[in-house]
């Protein structure tokens, strides 16, 4: 039952990310998603290693990233995503189709052994697709960082599903990557904004030559 509730939480947070234009709400929701994912491994088996790892990831995703991103938000004075490539209504309706697609894919994935929750892999893939979709369909660099985080959450959930017993090593590596990534992006966005007075990536294409 609790796994189910976390699944629903993941899905709902994804839908919120798809359907809202307010960046601050998005940051909070992604943080909630990270925390929910952090709790997930503890529901099934309790080990010290696992606990430390969970606490680490919750601190990072639930506190450090949101605080960093909110600070960038304040510094840049950007609060809303404006006129995305794909409208919010359409994005919302894309959600169920993405989940249906990932359920279908997950039925065909050759997996070594059975997984405790049949919906975990679809939801993980769904989260991944949503992250990718956010990166593709939004204009602001900050939203794209959020999409990147959502995508990472998807990878994390996926890793948890397929390598349930030894996720730590892989995950620690990924987490480190993400940490560096977010850090670099935060700084980069800040500098881009100072240089060009905006963070709209569609206008960066003027730099291509």
């Amino acid at each position: 039952m609790w796994t189910d509730i976390i699944m629903v939480l993941l899905i709902l947070t994804n839908m919120v990310v798809l359907g809202t234009s307010r960046l601050r709400a998005c940051i909070r929701v992604v943080a909630v998603q990270g925390v929910a994912l952090g709790i997930l491994p503890l529901l099934h088996s309790f080990e010290w290693q696992l606990l430390i790892f969970a606490v680490l990831s919750i601190i990072l995703k639930g506190i450090v990233f949101p605080v960093m991103l909110s600070r960038t938000l304040r510094q840049l004075n950007v609060w809303q995503e404006e006129s995305p490539y794909v409208g919010y209504g359409l994005s919302l309706l894309m959600g169920p189709f993405a989940l249906a697609f990932s359920s279908w894919i997950s039925l065909r994935l050759p997996l070594p052994y059975t997984i405790h929750s049949t919906m975990l892999i679809p939801v993980a893939l769904f989260t991944l697709i949503v992250g990718l979709f956010i990166i593709v369909s939004r204009k602001k660099a900050l939203t794209q960082v959020l999409g990147y985080l959502v995508m990472e959450n998807g990878i994390y959930a996926f890793g948890m599903a397929i390598a349930y017993h030894q996720p730590m090593l892989i995950e620690l590596g990924v987490l480190l990557d993400v940490f560096v990534g977010v850090f670099v992006m935060g700084i980069a966005i800040f500098h881009i904004s100072r240089q060009f007075d905006h963070i709209n990536t569609d206008q960066l294409s003027a730099l291509r030559n």
């Binding site: 990718l132 593709v136 369909s137 569609d202 960066l204």
Partner: peptide, 24 residues
């Protein structure tokens, strides 16, 4: 050929998904 970053990521995503669908 647009030179918009998002489009290139989209191409990658589409290619990946097509490969996934085709292989499975």
């Amino acid at each position: 050929q647009y030179g918009v970053v998002q489009m290139y990521v989209l191409y990658i995503a589409i290619t990946l998904i097509i490969l996934l669908v085709w292989k499975l």
